[in-house]
Design a protein around this nucleic acid. Structure first.
Length: 291
DNA sequence: ACCGCACCCTGAGCGC
DNA sequence: TGCGCTCAGGGTGCGG
């Protein structure tokens, strides 16, 4: 599932194949609720435009075009944004891909889940957006327009400070895990990194946010920075559907301390990692190392 | 203002 | 082999 690190890795690897290239043609699948801007509008508005900047806020990717309009993507649970220079997501296993030299990897062929394709006036590669479960979002924001989804995002998790979020913790009685997942408090944290950061900070996920001390809050934010940065460095987590734009797997899943390790030994104390449900989502923690 | 829950979707994994 | 069930969860929107 793409969280901040996976979106950031996507941003970094996509920038060279997107920026400064004039869009020549746009292909889409049919109208669907995840197209917050109708696909026919995208097909009408995008050709002729040149992407000038690719920014990330939380889990959103924002493409600023030469007319200052913005094309925005959210990857949801299974969204993939990639170029088709090489073979890509799901069409070959990771092992099968690894055994092929890059020049032998066939070009990606858009399938029924490939909802958007941008062709550029200078030729290949194209930019493709694929999303099996359609929890992603694609929309266009006109010049000078405010988008409510972007407007209500809190500070990007990498820029958050303990001092900044502590007051927000104080007034929330729900589990601290739920507050970490609240994108209006901090943007970019998802289930994996929330669990990992709470483990590193030694705080149990069910603790009411209002009872987290200032020192603990600072430890949690510090831990978040650490796990998010480390994950970006290793190319993100490839736990379920995420693959980088070039089809490669990330490496962070090998460094997980608790996420999806129920029953396995805690790497610090050997006690079994526990799994509970908080806010209808699984939470993983070590009862011995976290208090 | 805050909180918990139903819902959108599809594929994987499981038991029978 | 195949069917039907459950689970995964980011984000929105609703009712309490």
């Amino acid at each position: 599932m793409p969280e901040l690190p996976e979106v950031e890795v996507t941003r970094q690897r996509l920038a060279p194949v997107l920026l400064g290239r004039r869009i020549a043609a746009v292909e889409t699948t049919g109208d669907s609720y995840f197209f917050l801007t109708k696909p026919r509008t995208l097909r009408r508005e995008l050709p002729g435009r040149t992407p000038l900047a690719l920014d990330r806020h939380g889990k959103y990717l924002v493409v600023t075009l030469d007319n200052q309009a913005r094309l925005v993507f959210h990857l949801g649970m299974t969204g993939q944004l990639f170029s088709n220079g090489v073979m890509s997501p799901r069409l070959l296993s990771a092992a099968a891909r690894a055994s092929l030299a890059p020049e032998d990897q066939p070009a990606f062929r858009p399938d029924a889940h490939t909802h958007l394709r941008l062709r550029f006036s200078d030729g290949v590669p194209d930019l493709l957006f694929r999303d099996v479960r359609k929890f992603g979002k694609v929309f266009l924001v006109a010049v000078g327009e405010e988008n409510p989804r972007l407007a209500k995002l809190g500070v990007d998790a990498l820029r958050a400070t303990g001092e900044g979020v502590f007051p927000l913790f104080r007034r929330r009685r729900t589990a601290v895990k739920n507050v970490l997942l609240d994108q209006s408090v901090m943007a970019g944290v998802g289930n994996i990194y929330a669990d990992e950061a709470l483990f590193l900070a030694g705080v149990r996920p069910r603790r009411p946010a209002s009872r987290i001390t200032r020192v603990e809050c600072e430890r949690i934010v510090e831990a978040l920075h650490q796990v998010l940065q480390r994950s970006i460095e290793t190319g993100g987590s490839s736990i379920s559907d995420y693959l980088a734009p070039d089809g490669s797997d990330g490496g962070y899943q090998d460094e997980r301390q608790v996420y999806a390790r129920e029953g396995e030994a805690c790497r610090h104390c050997k006690a079994p990692v526990r799994r509970v449900v908080i806010g209808q989502r699984s939470a993983h923690f070590c009862a011995h190392c976290q208090h």
